[in-house]
Design a protein around this nucleic acid. Structure first.
Length: 272
DNA sequence: CTTTAGACCTGCTAGC
DNA sequence: TGCTAGCAGGTCTAAA
């Protein structure tokens, strides 16, 4: 579920609650959630008692940086939820709970794909997906020049945009939305994009992500922020989840196809 | 280098 | 009403 705007929404909600808070006691209910260290006992020993110094987002990862600079690296995958509460709560798919010096932190995950790693700051390369992330699409380092430097391939542009080593944080929703807004077909080979298309695409990505954050994320089914509230961005989607319905711009029926292994919705007339 | 299928899990929905 | 196939925001691996 969560792409960059959803993860950013969660992080913004957690920041004031977690920074300077402290892990008192951690319970793990699903051992597979903990990737590193492999041993749950060791995980608990290394996190309990530690103060949280900083809460950050990088791509779709949530980072809790502890006082000893060790990183708790959390990935929500499809259905993970990270919820803070002053009071104790119950969840139906709880994977981990933490009693803090003030309040409680819960990791709830229906499909149990989500992962948590705890790594010393010199060992972050062990979390490979995290370590190899590309640039942040909302930062200045992402611009026309950067995108152009990555386009020398025959891969479909959608596949490139989903590649976290190129751009950190885009997923199926925001890629489809960005390509629609830029008027580019998702299957168009990356190397055939014109300068004008590259420029439009950069703007579209930044716009779509910024709006997603303003709307506090897209809640298609499971996404909730750190307080358990839904976002509103689903009300503004142009193409995602609308296959077979009418294009909001030209009125033609939106196409649905499998591209880069993912369901892709686009307009044959508006996207070339 | 690239794409694709399968794996990891559970729940929801469309269709019979 | 009830069952089943197919699908879902993600990523990793193995195989072609």
């Amino acid at each position: 579920m969560p792409e960059l705007p959803e993860v950013e929404t969660i992080v913004r909600g957690l920041r004031s609650k977690l920074e300077c808070n402290r892990f008192i006691e951690v319970e793990v209910y699903n051992e597979n959630t903990i990737k590193n260290p492999k041993c749950i006992k060791e995980f608990k020993e290394r996190i309990e008692g530690k103060k949280i110094r900083e809460v950050k987002r990088r791509g779709k990862y949530i980072l809790l940086i502890l006082e000893d600079l060790a990183h708790v690296i959390i990935h929500l995958r499809m259905t993970g939820q990270l919820i803070y509460s002053e009071d104790q709560l119950n969840f139906s798919h709880l994977c981990l709970s933490a009693k803090l010096s003030k309040g409680y932190l819960y990791f709830n995950d229906i499909r149990k794909f989500g992962t948590i790693s705890l790594l010393p700051k010199d060992d972050l390369a062990k979390e490979k997906g995290f370590w190899t992330l590309g640039v942040e699409p909302l930062e200045e380092s992402f611009g026309i020049e950067y995108l152009k430097s990555k386009l020398d391939t025959g891969r479909p542009i959608k596949s490139l945009l989903l590649d976290q080593r190129v751009l950190a944080g885009l997923g199926n929703i925001y890629v489809d939305e960005s390509l629609f807004l830029a008027g580019i077909s998702p299957s168009k080979p990356a190397k055939t994009l014109s300068d004008e298309e590259i420029s439009k695409l950069v703007s579209a990505i930044k716009f779509v992500l910024t709006k997603g954050i303003e709307n506090k994320g897209t809640s298609f089914s499971d996404f909730v922020d750190s307080y358990g509230d839904k976002g509103t961005n689903q009300n503004f989607l142009q193409v995602y989840g609308r296959g077979g319905e009418k294009c909001k711009v030209c009125g033609n029926v939106l196409a649905k196809d499998k591209i880069a292994g993912r369901t892709t919705v686009f307009c044959l007339y508006c996207q070339k």
